[in-house]
Computed example of a mutant assay.
Amino acid sequence: MAARIRKGDSVVVIAGSDKGKRGEVLQVMPKLNRAVVQGVAMKTKHQKPAGAGQQGGRIESERAIDLSNVMLIDPKTDQPTRVGFRILDDKRKVRVARKTGALIES
């Protein structure tokens, strides 16, 4: 199965409390149908100092969000687009933006 969203892609969140935010995909979990997007769905963990000389505090990190809530950004128009696939002459299957037909390089 070819992945529509991959690590390193620029995406926009289309649903949820972070709707409209843009970020880069840091991790994709295809079996769970989730992705971690930079700067989206932040969680705060309060951590105690681990030992002498260590500093405790609040640590912020990203949570995974459902893949259905993100949309790839078209490289030509910088707008959200759906992803299609095309088979090139050299038998490679590549991703294309549905709005413009532009190849998505990754």
Rank of each mutant, 00 (worst) to 15 (best):
M1Q: 13
A2P: 14
A2D: 09
A3C: 06
A3E: 15
R4M: 15
R4K: 15
G8A: 04
S10D: 13
V11W: 03
V13I: 14
I14L: 09
I14A: 01
A15S: 13
A15D: 12
D18P: 08
D18S: 04
K19C: 06
G23S: 06
G23E: 11
E24F: 10
V25M: 04
V25L: 05
L26R: 07
Q27W: 09
Q27N: 09
Q27G: 01
M29W: 10
M29Y: 13
P30C: 10
P30F: 13
K31V: 09
N33F: 12
N33H: 15
N33P: 03
R34G: 00
V36S: 04
Q38G: 03
Q38S: 10
Q38E: 14
Q38K: 11
G39P: 09
G39Q: 08
G39Y: 09
A41D: 14
M42S: 07
K43I: 09
T44S: 15
K45C: 00
K45M: 01
Q47C: 03
Q47L: 10
P49N: 04
P49T: 00
P49I: 00
A50R: 12
G51R: 11
A52M: 07
G53N: 07
G56I: 05
G56W: 08
G57K: 14
I59G: 01
E60R: 07
E60G: 00
S61E: 15
E62M: 01
R63E: 15
A64Q: 06
A64E: 12
I65L: 12
I65S: 03
I65W: 01
D66H: 10
L67Y: 02
L67H: 04
S68K: 05
S68T: 02
S68F: 00
N69H: 10
V70F: 03
M71I: 02
M71G: 00
M71F: 01
M71H: 00
L72Q: 06
I73H: 01
I73L: 12
D74R: 03
P75C: 09
P75R: 08
P75E: 11
P75Q: 10
P75T: 08
K76M: 11
Q79I: 00
Q79W: 03
P80S: 02
P80H: 00
R82Q: 08
V83I: 15
G84D: 04
F85T: 03
F85N: 02
R86G: 01
R86F: 10
I87M: 09
D89V: 00
D89E: 06
K91D: 12
K93H: 12
V94Q: 08
V94M: 06
R95E: 07
A97D: 07
R98V: 01
R98S: 02
R98I: 02
G101Q: 07
G101S: 05
G101Y: 09
A102E: 15
A102G: 06
L103Q: 14
I104C: 01
E105Y: 12
S106C: 03
